[in-house]
């Protein structure tokens, strides 16, 4: 574990907590894409299949449970909790996210490190996570103005993988044989997709107003 990866995990955790805070306390998911949340639930479900078979550390297992539990409960809240569901913007959140799942699965079947069930699904989760934010970014452009909590959520979610890139650079230079092109390229694409969001976020953040 290095400071970049710890910062990345904490940033990821913070993004999830900000979203849960917004949904649980003010019972609102305005501006949040249910489709992105559904994709993230699939990402964690296919990435953490080894949670029962390979133990890395208490921290690792605990964080996996947190991400699994939070992503599924956020989907549950947005789908079935009547107060929260009412604030869900169904008409605007129309990105065909299932069209993202199949290409990622095909790509994982073609490009992976090992051709095993767990490894292919794990690779699939990497590809899917790289594009999972697209429905949210599209919704963001349609709803124009979003509240600060949603803006913070997206900022933290985009930032965590950027910190992971620093972690991979650090590990590449400090650990022999630490080369994982698939993870690195997927992580880079994922972070680059946030580029224009970060641009507007900093513009607004510096201006002290909400994110538009």
């Amino acid at each position: 574990m290095n400071i970049f990866r710890l910062a990345g995990d904490m940033t990821h955790l913070a993004s999830v907590l900000v979203l849960l805070l917004k949904i649980h306390t003010i019972k609102s998911c305005a501006g949040v894409s249910l489709r992105t949340q559904e994709l993230y639930a699939i990402v964690f479900a296919t990435r953490y299949l080894d949670i029962f078979t390979s133990f890395v550390s208490v921290y690792n297992t605990f964080m996996k449970l947190v991400f699994l539990g939070s992503s599924f409960s956020i989907v549950w809240y947005m789908r079935y909790h009547k107060a929260v569901h009412r604030t869900y913007d169904r008409e605007q959140d129309t990105f065909r996210h299932w069209f993202l799942v199949l290409p990622c699965l095909v790509l994982a079947l073609l490009i992976h490190e090992k051709f095993t069930f767990l490894e292919v699904l794990w690779t699939f989760s990497l590809y899917l996570e790289a594009v999972a934010i697209l429905p949210q970014l599209v919704l963001l452009q349609r709803t124009r103005n979003i509240d600060n909590l949603t803006g913070q959520y997206i900022f933290l979610l985009g930032g965590y993988r950027g910190l992971y890139i620093l972690n991979w650079i650090y590990r590449y230079f400090t650990e022999p044989h630490f080369v994982h092109w698939i993870t690195w390229i997927a992580g880079l694409v994922q972070t680059l997709l946030y580029a224009d969001f970060f641009y507007y976020y900093f513009l607004r953040f510096i201006g002290g107003r909400g994110v538009e």
């Binding site: 990866r5 890395v56 690792n60 991400f67 090992k114 794990w122 044989h177 630490f178 994982h180 993870t183």
Partner: peptide, 10 residues
């Protein structure tokens, strides 16, 4: 082996 190294990340 190197794959375990990969899987120690979230």
């Amino acid at each position: 082996n190197k794959n375990d190294v990969t899987k120690d990340e979230l």
